[in-house]
């Protein structure tokens, strides 16, 4: 069903809150996709609905366009975050092909993404109406507070796949994550940001992981916590890392659950 709204953001928030709360109270997951786009009309919404149904016949959704704020909302019945994320890829493909997309797409699924409170939902809408940076990427909304000692993490690895994966997963859990691709960059970022935790590979260009830990120890007597995430499997490497003050040692290939568990253990 396509509905047009011409009210202020506050009404969009209220509408979202009503819908999400209703679903969550009934024990169902509720997926939300918000996209900043222009010039949508009933015809476009109908064709969008057909397009989405073609790709995902089982999809049950409400399409709402707030033309005052130029925000398209899609509310997905019983749709978890993973499914919502995939649906947003289909939506983006449609919007970009028709040149409707004007800003980023933000997705969430409640209760997975946090409590369906009016505060969280207004934050979610704010991510689209007042984005921190202008881009057309798909962003995932999460309740940002970790409530833990470790809040900021620096991930140091030459492998882009690992860096990106770890960053995304930890950001989803509310950590502020930054990346560095070598020891020198890591040291610079460490000086600038003083992260609570560093996750580093040992095999790094310019400054290797050992030298990095050594430099950090010299700079900060309290020594920032370091978890080594490395390809090096030999016990000699492990011993050397622990001697230099590593708090934990994980070998690749690794599991993100294990990594997050180790971070939580450091927090304990």
């Amino acid at each position: 069903m396509a509905v047009f709204m011409r009210d202020q953001v506050v009404d969009l928030n209220q509408d979202l809150f009503n819908f999400v709360s209703f679903k969550c109270v009934n024990g169902l997951a509720c997926g939300v996709i918000l996209a900043r786009c222009a010039n949508l009309n009933q015809k476009v919404l109908d064709s969008l609905k057909n397009y989405m149904s073609k790709h995902q016949p089982e999809l049950s959704a409400q399409y709402v366009y707030d033309d005052h704020n130029q925000v398209l909302s899609i509310l997905l019945d019983n749709w978890k975050l993973s499914a919502t994320h995939y649906t947003s890829l289909i939506l983006k493909d449609f919007l970009q092909d028709h040149h409707f997309l004007e800003g980023s797409i933000v997705i969430a699924s409640f209760p997975e993404s946090g409590e369906p409170s009016s505060f969280n939902l207004s934050q979610l809408v704010g991510c689209v109406t007042h984005p921190k940076k202008e881009s057309k990427e798909i962003r995932i909304f999460t309740d940002q507070s970790t409530g833990e000692e470790i809040q900021s993490i620096l991930v140091v690895d030459t492998d882009e796949v690992v860096r990106e994966f770890v960053r995304l997963r930890l950001e989803l859990q509310g950590y502020a994550v930054s990346e560095a691709k070598d020891g020198h960059e890591a040291l610079e970022k460490y000086s600038l940001m003083s992260p609570d935790l560093i996750i580093t590979e040992l095999n790094l260009p310019i400054l290797d992981g050992y030298q990095l830990m050594n430099q950090i120890n010299k700079r900060d007597s309290k020594s920032g916590k370091v978890i080594v995430l490395t390809d090096k499997h030999l016990s000699s490497h492990m011993n050397r890392a622990f001697e230099l003050g590593a708090a934990d040692y994980i070998t690749k290939p690794f599991s993100i659950s294990e990594l997050t568990w180790r971070i939580k253990k450091l927090n304990a």
Binding site: H85, Y86, L89, E137, F165, L168, S255
Partner: peptide, 23 residues
């Protein structure tokens, strides 16, 4: 593919099967 790769990274763990790109 950036968005699709992000989708893969975010949903690597969990029970749901990963979908092929929608294009």
């Amino acid at each position: 593919f950036q968005d699709y790769l992000t989708y893969l990274h975010v949903n690597l763990e969990g029970k749901e099967r990963l979908h092929v790109p929608p294009f």
